[in-house]
Design a protein around this nucleic acid. Structure first.
Lengths: 190, 190
DNA sequence: TCAGGGTCTGACCGATCGGTCAGGCATGCT
DNA sequence: AGCATGCCTGACCGATCGGTCAGACCCTGA
């Protein structure tokens, strides 16, 4: 069972991906991962400082690109921001479906940790951009439905080809975000 | 600290609601709940058979009504099913926002338990109805985005008045579900 | 031949989890 | 007075968690 080449690290990453996607981050123990790899739990912790380090390494590419999208958003407002945010987020969600599935349902708790605090801020900015920088409830609601719904849908449809999933999401986002005729529901006080 | 009237059970339920909503079902220990109530963990387990019984009692009304919506859906197809599903689900999601928040992010794991297996089936039927009983990818994607997005949004906007949240969600759902001009992307196989 | 470093492991640790159990205490009925 | 019952508790249990550690094993280079 001893492995001459040090590819164990990679196998651990692959196994962790599978287990996290299947049973979630908290629902997966280091022993689960070790068993899937065929090594001991101590080996997993030899290659990675702790359980969280495994997750952050798995999520790193997605986080980097999310940050890039956030940067691309600075300065944009109104329809331009809306379009950029929608297109960019759909693209990210489709491409990083696997990563989304990894932390599915544990977003709220994971975001509470300081290491992921900036992601919290990014998703808030993304939501504002999608809402067209308005605080109209209807716009905020639509933005959040899209963000959450797209994430969940991508995690669910892991096997759908990009060429099918992406245009479906883009079309939906465009329909959902099309400027509703204002419909001035005058509410003076909140 | 002894309570003459047996209102402890109600206090436990209330505390469990708060804690589950704040840190999730798995993220909340029986000791957490006991501490918030001001009693011992054994007392919690005296009033409830186990941790899961607490959750099921909290979720019972929502589940009952979800079942009713599913019943109302039988026999309907096409646009009628779509409308009924959308209106019914938005209504349920808005009214049972708190219950959704309780199990936020733990839906996948909870659904795996046999006690909640029928909810799995209901949500699948709901998705099919929302998709207009089509298996066109675009329709399935839109249906899932709506279901997941609406749930998450309701859980997030716990404090928004019903009168604001409901129409916003309904308008969004109507826009998202409006019959897209077919746009025959001929895919012969699958 | 030997030293050293990278890889891996079993044994172990403290903490926390859900859950059990025998018994204490107050009350009310007989 | 005696007894049953409902409510509540501390002490305890086995399991599991993430993480530590001393040492075994193997390869390589001097």
């Amino acid at each position: 069972m001893r492995r001459a080449e040090p590819e164990t690290r990679g196998e651990i990453l692959a196994a962790a991906t599978r287990r996290f996607a299947a049973t979630g981050y908290r629902g997966t123990s280091l022993q689960d991962i070790a068993t899937e790899v065929g090594c001991s739990k101590a080996t997993v912790l030899y290659h990675f400082a702790n359980k969280e380090a495994l997750l952050t390494e798995l999520m790193a590419p997605a986080i980097t690109e999310l940050q890039a999208l956030d940067d691309a958003l600075t300065g944009l407002t109104g329809r331009a921001a809306q379009q950029t945010a929608a297109d960019g987020f759909v693209d990210l969600a489709v491409r990083f479906r696997r990563e989304i599935a990894l932390i599915r349902g544990e977003f709220p708790e994971l975001l509470r940790q300081p290491e992921f605090a900036h992601i919290q801020r990014i998703s808030e900015r993304l939501r504002d951009a999608l809402a067209g920088n308005t605080d109209r409830p209807a716009a905020q609601v639509a933005a959040l439905v899209l963000l959450a719904g797209i994430s969940e849908t991508c995690a669910e449809f892991v096997d759908m080809p990009d060429a099918e999933l992406r245009p479906a999401l883009l079309a939906l986002a465009r329909r959902a975000l099309e400027p509703v005729p204002e419909h001035p529901t005058q509410d003076k006080e909140t």
